[in-house]
Computed example of a mutant assay.
Amino acid sequence: MSDERISEKVKNVQSSAIRELLKHSKMEGVISLGGGIPNPDLFDREGLQIAMDKVLSVAWKEAFQYGLSEGSPELREAICQLSAQRMISCNPDEVVITSGSQQSLDMVARVLINPGDTVVVERPTYLAALQVLQLAEAKLESVGTDGEGMNVDELEALVKSKTVKAVYIVPTFGNPGGVTLSESRRKQLVELSKRYNFVIIEDDPYSEINFGDKQFKPLTEWAKEMDNSENVIYTSTFSKILTPGARVGWVIAPEWIKRQLVTLKQATDLHTSSLSQALTHQYLATGRLAGQIKLIRESYKQKCDTLCEQLETQMGEHLTFHRPMGGMFLWATFKDGRNTTEWLKATLANGVVYVPGEFFYANNPDRSTLRMSYVTASDENLKEAVARLKASL
């Protein structure tokens, strides 16, 4: 009886497979390649302590008070400075502070999408974005990816045949695919957006976790060069480079949607935690973030290399994958078409967990795929995990 009282739109949202798998990863003796969470050993506890002491000594009244719905002016200014290092030119009036990038996606979807609007995602795509888009009652279409990211030619064929409201993409070191959209495809995507007048939702949690020297110009900046800045909305977060527990993300948006995002923020939670914003601002003021990012890059690159080498050596005859240029994830496909959801029972029995790939598809899932996160396991555990995966064959 009680089930009938739940709204249809909420009943239709799928539970996160990753959240369900977390209970397995907590079991004694299990090595987890499943969770998409940063390594807590790399949280800058000393720097956060310095920042919090500063909050409590000089900014405590503001930190414990209500704040502006669009976010702290000081933090928005600091985000513009951080954005400049990512080749993004913006001003504080374009920035809205959110409670993590998940809220950014939810707010953008609710402001932008009417029930039945067509939204295109990558195949595969970020699981929690699928949940948000389902909740917004979007009609989902998907286009394939390869080693250069989204297949924009496939997208072009789609937008020629039907009206598309928006394209959601994680272009740099993506989740779950671990791939990066090439420069030529970035330009092609922005040009398509201009020609067919659809919005690009650019989700960028991982670009700072770069294993090489090459920087990738964000779509939002390509859009400025191509006179299409009204059609790109950029979201990012401090979760992967500082701490996810603070729940601080942001949106950089053109004025036509930014005003509505602020209004929705008022109706949603008034504003992001003043304490979290103050902590983040004071941390940025310490100047420690660059060193923190360097530490994360070096650690994650080492772990990624270890996992890739072990997979190539131990399981190269069984699966294929693209070596990530950054980020937190490796995506693999079994050559024999093995169903990885079914196979998980065998790997769990051998003490290792991953996320089956089928959960990352809007439609037509490839069940021979899987996502592995390498960032929280030690090098020795990564080697042992691959040995257990091989034994599970």
Rank of each mutant, 00 (worst) to 15 (best):
M1V: 08
M1K: 10
D3W: 10
K9F: 09
S15I: 00
I18N: 04
R19S: 15
E20G: 11
H24F: 14
S32R: 05
G35W: 06
G36F: 08
P40S: 15
G47W: 10
G47I: 10
Q49N: 10
I50P: 06
S57P: 03
S72M: 15
I79R: 03
I79P: 06
I88P: 03
S89P: 01
T98C: 12
Q102H: 14
M107G: 10
A109G: 08
G116V: 13
D117A: 12
D117K: 14
T118P: 07
V119L: 15
T125D: 04
A128C: 09
V132L: 06
Q134T: 15
Q134F: 12
S142F: 07
G149Q: 00
N151T: 05
E154P: 00
V164T: 03
K165P: 13
A166W: 05
P176F: 09
S182L: 01
R185H: 05
V190D: 00
L192A: 07
I201S: 05
P205W: 03
E208F: 09
F211E: 02
A223P: 03
E225N: 04
D227I: 12
V232C: 10
V232D: 07
I233N: 09
F238G: 06
S239C: 13
G245Y: 14
R247M: 13
G249Q: 12
I257D: 00
I257H: 01
I257C: 07
Q260Y: 00
S273T: 08
T280D: 02
Y283N: 08
K294D: 13
Y300S: 02
D305S: 01
E312G: 02
M315P: 01
F329A: 09
F334L: 09
K335R: 14
D336R: 11
W343C: 13
K345S: 14
V353W: 01
Y361R: 05
D379L: 14
K383E: 00
L393V: 15
